[in-house]
Design a protein around this nucleic acid. Sequence first.
DNA 1: ACAAAACAAGAGCACTGCTCTCGAATGTTG
DNA 2: CAACATTCGAGAGCAGTGCTCTTGTTTTGT
Lengths: 238, 238
Amino acid sequence: MEHTRTARERAREEITTEILEAARRRLASDGPANLSLRAVARDVGMVSSAVYRYVPSRDDLLTALLVEAYDELGAAAEAADDGVSDRTDVRARWTATCRAVRSWSVGHPHDYALLYGSPVIGYAAPRDTVGPATRVIVRLVGIISSAHEIGGAARPLPEGPGPSFEPSVGDATAALREVAGLDTDVPPELVGRTLMAWSTVFGTISFELWGHLVGSVSDHETYFDSVVSRLWHDLGGV
Amino acid sequence: MEHTRTARERAREEITTEILEAARRRLASDGPANLSLRAVARDVGMVSSAVYRYVPSRDDLLTALLVEAYDELGAAAEAADDGVSDRTDVRARWTATCRAVRSWSVGHPHDYALLYGSPVIGYAAPRDTVGPATRVIVRLVGIISSAHEIGGAARPLPEGPGPSFEPSVGDATAALREVAGLDTDVPPELVGRTLMAWSTVFGTISFELWGHLVGSVSDHETYFDSVVSRLWHDLGGV
DNA sequence: ACAAAACAAGAGCACTGCTCTCGAATGTTG
DNA sequence: CAACATTCGAGAGCAGTGCTCTTGTTTTGT
């Protein structure tokens, strides 16, 4: 069934991307909660009902933007990591990647809110978006496990105090086995510590963007660097 | 100017609380983004325009709910801390308070979203709500500084790796001086570590509630306990 | 008893997501 | 090429939202 793209198919693709681009601009300026399908329609010079030929609903449009934003953030993080020439300098890779995540988030606060804010969409749709969502954390895990493979880059993590991570993070360990294809499983303590670190990065950026650190932190950039370096230490890095 | 409360004043108070109660029910069921002033009006048997006699706008209503929710969460946290009979068992106090924060959040996910989710209101209003917002973190700081005053409850925190917290957390230190009235300032490293811990608690709860740990963490309760105990260790607690 | 203030109700405006219908443009097939 | 089918854009319309204004009623202070 090899058929040349008809004019209609080409037009459909162009208009679809046109709509998505206008929607991203609207998202960047108005935020996810105020994203109006009618406003997007006006931006592309169409009437609102015509847009429904290309987008099933507002939620689907938000989901498409969600995937795009996840991808953009993931690409930014990976590019920052790849930019470190000395691949054995895992500490520099960790720092660069975390900084890239914050930089993108500060530069795209509304996109960040769509990704990591309170979900505006029901819980049905965003579940098939786990793929692009995991790009950042997967890369971070790669850096951390590299550090624990390279001699002298990290001290082995002793079992932390309190209840072990072992019973609760089994799913994450299995997921890592799938995606990273490691020969040996990442120990539960390291998996838990990695989840903790990622939660802290998210919490720090969210607090900064949502204004929860107003009156407490003055220089967010150096504060973030302080946090990131201590996280690296808590992960066993040297 | 001692005047007995007229019938109208009593009615106004009653109707106001009636509206707020209905709004909280709506918030609990529909979430902050879907809170409709008209729906609240219907619930209390009024027409929407009548509600505007009591509430200036939807944003002001959300702000009122915000303050109420902050207060409820703060009370829950403080009650949990106060419930620990041995006041020198600072580790138990820390654990109980953190658990209370998570319990309230899991029990009131939509209220939690209003407090700590991406802000639905503009940045003007919520800034005069910093008072009730700080109750939890203030109590947590109290527990941590108690631990560092009691001999043997905590080891002094060595300066962490990377950039010092000193230049970025000065405002927080000053704020603590105000609210807690401590004789000597909390050292920057401890202030920074406390902010980090609070960010991690927030990040962990948010990830759980917003579904970012689906496929990674199976038992959220024990996972949270694992996180909290490691945070206590990172804060210098023993 | 009367003027002033507060109130509840209704209509109305501008906006939203979404559905349906109706011609027109474009596609495929005989 | 002609006929039929599909796709598309525009418009009207529905139900819902926040919010304002007017109108008539009730309560208050004088």
